[in-house]
Design a protein around this nucleic acid. Structure first.
Lengths: 156, 156
DNA sequence: TGCAATGATTGCGCTCATGCAACTGTTATG
DNA sequence: CATAACAGTTGCATGAGCGCAATCATTGCA
């Protein structure tokens, strides 16, 4: 039980469970938005108003690509694209109410799925789990970016 | 600390960290294989020899699609496609050594990243974490499928 | 004020994933 | 043995994502 390798395996197994939860929450909205599109929504939900270059940078894609992905989200009514009044070269990208609903739906689904799993644990186990994961998250460092890390890199 | 909502949030934060780990491990091989392709590799690595219909079923895609994804993996030298001698209608899909290397590389990368995070926790914290996650994984039920749950649903 | 820098868009070409329908080959069944 | 059932493949079409190069619009600077 003191073997770091075995301990990492325990985390791996739990990660598998959590990936399943995440995957199902994503699958739930896959008919409405693609994965790269959802990444944009989650990104904007987390960071607030962004311009196109920031989105492209965060996603690690070419700006021309970001333009088209954003375009699809605008057409879908999930993203609002306005000009930055102070510098009209920049865009101001924000979620619409519908866009917020999508993100909230995904996160809510995850939260419920996790709560459902925890409901079959004892109260003491739940407390121990919460405490242990706090220390784990702290050891990983504060979320380097935020919500969008959920989907970082999972393109194509 | 006894609030189930706050406890679920702690799991959500940890899930974010783990998703980052998974995403980076996937991004690492994204030049070699696409996400759907990796899903096939992980699937076969987990279940062993499969036929095409099983792959299509597990991925939730049309068989014609599975044919082409498998074809790309065969061409890439990551998957071996032979006929089932007992019934030549069926295929026998297996990983090549190179295919195994890809899967092992991804899993190894994750394991190392997790171990790196745990290295900055105290020994007691690591033990508590391993124990807590064992109970969490148990509460979630045994892995319904297996390794491939890591990527389930993350298509496109 | 004219030119350079900067952010975003558009045109072009490519790969991958996807579903459907038609077809081929293999096995089982009457 | 002929036909039906079944696994897989192929043709066809669509749409998303991606990068690169060229272009447009706006702003900053000399």
């Amino acid at each position: 039980m003191d073997d770091p390798g075995r301990q990492a395996d325990a985390v791996m197994r739990a990660a598998r469970v959590l990936m399943g939860v995440v995957a199902r929450s994503v699958a739930e909205v896959e008919d409405q938005v693609s994965l790269p599109q959802l990444r944009v929504l989650v990104l904007v939900a987390d960071r607030g108003s962004m311009n196109l270059g920031q989105v492209a940078e965060a996603l690690g894609v070419h700006p021309s690509n970001a333009t088209r992905t954003v375009e699809r989200l605008v057409v879908a009514g999930l993203l609002r694209r306005t000009e930055d009044p102070s510098d009209r070269r920049y865009l101001a990208l924000e979620l619409t109410d519908a866009g917020h609903d999508v993100v909230q739906g995904v996160m809510g689904h995850r939260r419920e799925a996790i709560a459902a799993i925890m409901s079959s644990m004892t109260s003491a186990q739940r407390r121990a789990l919460a405490r242990a994961l706090e220390s784990f998250a702290a050891a990983a460092g504060d979320p380097p970016h935020g919500e969008e890390a959920f989907l970082l890199g999972l393109s194509h």
